[in-house]
């Protein structure tokens, strides 16, 4: 499967996690990693699976590297019907705005017609789990869902 991992980050933690997911999946799939700050909504391709990893920043806003993407999604209002994505959020339950960043991205993607595969999974930096222990099973499950979907379509 042709997979693109897109990350939105402030502190680099989401970038590190994106690279971990790439390392885990690349034995079986073609996997690219890109910063959301370098990704244009016009480049979404229904032939590829998008795994989006994003933190939350400030008062529940998108992290800095995802903000241009958020603005472009609102400005371009692209038609993303046929595009599939999975979403993994990073947050800290010390704060009230825990994981709103990934929720914003989900809303932007779904409003454009893209389909969320599986559940949006969120990691809590103040919890006891390591992010990759949640993210790697999440990524594999989303890929399996995408493969099932492709198989059904074929």
């Amino acid at each position: 499967m042709n997979i693109v991992i897109l990350y939105g980050t402030e502190t680099g933690n989401a970038e590190m996690l994106a690279e971990d997911i790439q390392a885990d999946l690349q034995a079986d799939h073609a996997v690219e990693v890109a910063n959301l700050s370098d990704f244009d909504p016009g480049d979404f391709d229904p032939e590829r699976l998008y795994l989006i990893v994003s933190s939350t920043y400030g008062d529940g806003e998108l992290p800095a590297s995802a903000q241009p993407f958020g603005a472009a999604m609102r400005a371009q209002a692209p038609d993303l019907s046929g595009v599939s994505f999975g979403l993994f959020g990073l947050g800290d339950s010390e704060y009230e705005t825990f994981n709103q960043g990934s929720l914003h991205l989900q809303e932007l993607m779904e409003a454009a017609g893209a389909a969320l595969l599986g559940e949006r999974v969120v990691h809590d930096a103040s919890g006891s789990d390591l992010a990759e222990d949640l993210a790697l099973p999440w990524a594999r499950a989303v890929v399996a869902l995408a493969e099932t979907r492709l198989g059904a379509a074929a």
Binding site: T11, G12, N13, M16, D92, S93, E94, D124, A125, S126, L130
Partner: peptide
């Protein structure tokens, strides 16, 4: 000391 979530950034630094 009560912001351990912020301190999780050290996992990047270890690498």
């Amino acid at each position: 000391a009560d912001h351990q979530g912020t301190k999780a950034i050290t996992r990047q630094f270890e690498r």
